[in-house]
Lab assay of single mutants.
Amino acid sequence: DEETLERIAKELKEKGWTLIVNGKLITDAREALKWLLEEEERR
């Protein structure tokens, strides 16, 4: 759910983690959240 996604995005940002999505590096939590939401919609 959205709360979980926001928590994940926040944790990613705090830890300075990066996500690699389709070979693209995502360092911004907002971008990561946007991607996660798009993935949820596809299901």
Rank of each mutant, 00 (worst) to 15 (best):
A29W: 14
E2V: 11
E40Y: 15
E2A: 12
E11R: 12
I26P: 02
L33M: 06
I26N: 01
A29N: 02
L36R: 01
V21E: 01
R43M: 09
W35H: 03
D1H: 13
E14A: 08
K10V: 08
R42H: 05
E39P: 05
V21L: 11
L36M: 07
K15P: 02
L19V: 04
L12I: 10
E11Q: 12
A9Q: 08
E11L: 15
I20L: 10
T18K: 08
E6D: 09
L36A: 02
A29V: 14
W35S: 01
E11Y: 15
R7H: 04
L19Q: 01
I20S: 03
R30Y: 13
N22A: 11
D1Q: 07
I26L: 07
R42W: 07
N22G: 08
E2P: 11
L19K: 01
R42V: 04
R43D: 05
L19P: 01
K24E: 05
E39Y: 14
L25T: 06
K13Q: 12
G16K: 08
W17H: 00
T4E: 06
E6F: 12
W17Q: 00
I20H: 02
R43T: 05
A9V: 13
A32S: 01
R43C: 08
V21Q: 02
L19M: 05
L12N: 01
T18L: 12
K15N: 09
L25K: 03
A29C: 15
E40K: 07
D28V: 10
E40P: 04
N22Q: 04
W17K: 00
L12Q: 00
R43V: 06
L37D: 00
T18A: 10
R30S: 04
R43A: 10
D28P: 03
K24I: 12
A32Y: 13
L12V: 03
K13P: 02
K13E: 13
K10P: 01
T27E: 08
L12R: 01
N22K: 05
L5E: 03
K10W: 08
E6N: 12
L12W: 13
E11T: 11
A9H: 06
K10F: 08
L12E: 01
L5K: 03
I20P: 01
D1M: 13
W17C: 15
I8T: 01
T18M: 11
N22Y: 14
N22P: 05
I26T: 02
E39Q: 11
T4N: 05
K34W: 07
W35A: 02
L37R: 11
G16M: 11
E14Q: 06
W17Y: 07
I20D: 02
E6R: 13
E40V: 14
L33A: 10
K10Y: 06
T18G: 05
G23M: 09
E41W: 14
I20M: 07
T27S: 05
E40R: 09
L36I: 07
N22D: 09
L5P: 01
A9L: 15
R30V: 12
E40L: 15
R42C: 14
G16W: 12
L5F: 07
L19Y: 06
K13H: 10
L12P: 00
W35V: 02
N22E: 06
E2L: 12
E40W: 15
L33G: 00
V21R: 04
E11G: 05
V21F: 11
E39A: 09
E2K: 12
T4F: 13
L25P: 05
R42Q: 05
K24F: 12
R7N: 05
E3M: 13
E31I: 09
R30H: 06
T4M: 13
E39W: 15
E11W: 15
L25A: 04
E31H: 04
E6A: 12
E14T: 11
E39H: 10
K24D: 04
R7G: 03
D1R: 11
L19W: 11
A29M: 13
R7E: 04
L25G: 02
R42K: 06
E38W: 12
E3K: 09
G23N: 04
E2F: 12
R30T: 08
K24G: 04
I8E: 01
L25V: 10
E11F: 15
L5A: 03
E6M: 14
R42Y: 04
I8L: 12
L36D: 00
E38G: 06
L5R: 03
L36E: 00
E31F: 07
E41Q: 13
D1W: 15
L12T: 02
W17M: 02
D28H: 04
R43F: 09
A9P: 01
E3A: 13
W17L: 04
E39K: 08
G23R: 06
I8V: 05
